[in-house]
Design a protein around this nucleic acid. Sequence first.
DNA 1: ACTTTATTCTACCTACGTATGGTATATTTA
DNA 2: TAAATATACCATACGTAGGTAGAATAAAGT
Lengths: 134, 134
Amino acid sequence: MRFQKTTEYAIRVMVFLASYPEQRFSVNVLHKKLNIPYKYLGRLMHTLSQTGMVEVEQGKHGGYKVNSNLDKIYLYQVIGAVEGLENYDRCILGFPECSDENPCPLHKAWLERREAIKEMIYNTTLADLTVNTQ
Amino acid sequence: MRFQKTTEYAIRVMVFLASYPEQRFSVNVLHKKLNIPYKYLGRLMHTLSQTGMVEVEQGKHGGYKVNSNLDKIYLYQVIGAVEGLENYDRCILGFPECSDENPCPLHKAWLERREAIKEMIYNTTLADLTVNTQ
DNA sequence: ACTTTATTCTACCTACGTATGGTATATTTA
DNA sequence: TAAATATACCATACGTAGGTAGAATAAAGT
């Protein structure tokens, strides 16, 4: 019961970028600041840039910068961009036929907790998550 | 954010066995009833038997049977036997230095939800999870 | 204008863990 | 002895994580 590493990386990067919304960072700098493997991060940033959550500039002095609309970028979007959101509507025991009408024995208990997590990721924006460590 | 498949399998099996606490089942029967790959399930059952949560009998007409103390077998034990419990005390962003004193920006929100999940797995026993589909 | 430099982008390649299957052997008991 | 099952070991598939190499891009230096 945990995020994929890639998802952790993605949220870490986005939180960092959101903390310096005017600045542009190269992959190399992000790699050093956030302790994420350089090449892996490169591909991740490319993926994130394609969703529009970060803006990219190529060439010398290029790099990545968060999209200015911090309060429009939700955690669920970051998670959805990397590991998807299927798990948040899934039976915890993997029963395909599990539903409110035909519940598995953990259905209700898990539903409540899962909804609390969804409430978190669907209501938290990057504007809520800035962190200044400078 | 999900269980490993193996963890799902383990809980499925334990819930099934707990529903027929007097009966002994062969791997082959469990495999067919629960739609879990035969060979994989064999090893999983062996693992589970070593924790004492299920009792094993070999030979013709042998098989697995849940330990009779249904109300003493907690969900966290089943989860711990397969994928471990480390993730339930882990920073959601993977910051090693994250703590109550030095929280990551998601610390408090995640802590509350994570504790709700822990509350579930530490308070639910197999006695709460029987299901009769016969 | 040409070259160098710093950067992203793209396409493979490697490592590793989880999930799964195959085959052989050991154990029990009808 | 034979059938049913457990146990052990080896092989395969697959997804995630991480690395290598070079092409494309764009700025800066000459």
